[in-house]
Design a protein around this nucleic acid. Structure first.
Ligand SMILES: [Zn+2]
Ligand SMILES: [Zn+2]
Ligand SMILES: [Zn+2]
Ligand SMILES: [Zn+2]
Lengths: 141, 141
DNA sequence: TGTAATTCCTCTAGTAACTAGAGGTTCAAG
DNA sequence: CTTGAACCTCTAGTTACTAGAGGAATTACA
């Protein structure tokens, strides 16, 4: 049996985060000692490692829940996992494209000023003026 | 004089967001009509356009505040704008790199399963198992 | 001028995924 | 048996908004 601290060390998930996951229903409520402290078994450890890896892959918790619910599933139910993977991949690609647009504009902006700063700063000006931009850009969906 | 709705239409910033910016001190408190409705001048419009563009470049509001405070500045104070631009550029590049790692892993994961789903799904399995990954990956700083 | 549609007002709460802190209890080692 | 580390619950803060309730002002039109 593991204490919450043991689980934290083995998964690199912080203690308050483990409690948070329990509150959200991602981890089942564990047994408790006589003194009310949590004690986890091997299954809980595996489940938390699964969650951890999904988070490292950028999945939102709602999709982690979806994947966890597929434990023990078979047949076409498992297609849900493929959907989640492809949605996430599409999302990541979309974000990369947006960030590359940002990178281009910010690169242009960063070198716009000669640094003399007599009266104005071209960087400051460029931050406010989209008409000088090379294309569209927005960090958000 | 513009109503808050006029300002919203001209900047594409939503009405509640304009009020939110006012509350945060990014926009000065505007004049009001006898009936307590906000009325904005040209300067407010320009300021909001500035904020909008900074946000589209992904700057956090704290840095937008920093840039706004540079209005009318001169000399070395303006270097602050360069710092903000370069920090943002570095941050964007870092995020791109992370997302490219994610993209690689998710691509691998997405094609891992043959779709038969007799008993297991290789996609589902890959979501939980970092040992199959090609490298490190984490979506967060 | 009357009235109806639209826009505006304030305030609270909800979003995602945690993180930090307060104030107090239990556990493990020596 | 006494420390000190680890644990407990609960609340609130983070970012940048967005949604909704309940009500008042403005505008357009007849
Ligand atoms: Zn400059
Ligand atoms: Zn632009
Ligand atoms: Zn599959
Ligand atoms: Zn991995």
């Amino acid at each position: 049996m593991y204490s919450i601290g043991d689980l934290s060390r083995r998964t690199q998930v912080k203690v308050p985060t483990i409690r948070f996951y329990e509150g959200k229903g991602l981890l089942p409520k564990p047994e408790r000692t006589a003194g009310n402290q949590r004690r986890y078994d091997e299954a809980a450890l595996k489940r938390l490692l699964f969650i951890r890896h999904c988070r490292d892959l950028g999945l939102p918790l709602i999709d982690v829940v979806g994947l966890l619910s597929l434990e023990g599933a078979a047949g076409s139910d498992l297609n849900r996992a493929h959907e989640i993977a492809e949605k996430q991949l599409a999302d990541v690609r979309d974000r990369i494209a947006r960030l590359q647009n940002l990178e281009a504009e910010l690169t242009r902006i960063s070198v716009a000023c000669d640094g003399k700063h007599d009266h104005v700063c071209a960087v400051l000006h460029a931050f406010g003026d989209h008409s000088e931009c090379m294309g569209t850009h927005s960090h958000k969906k």
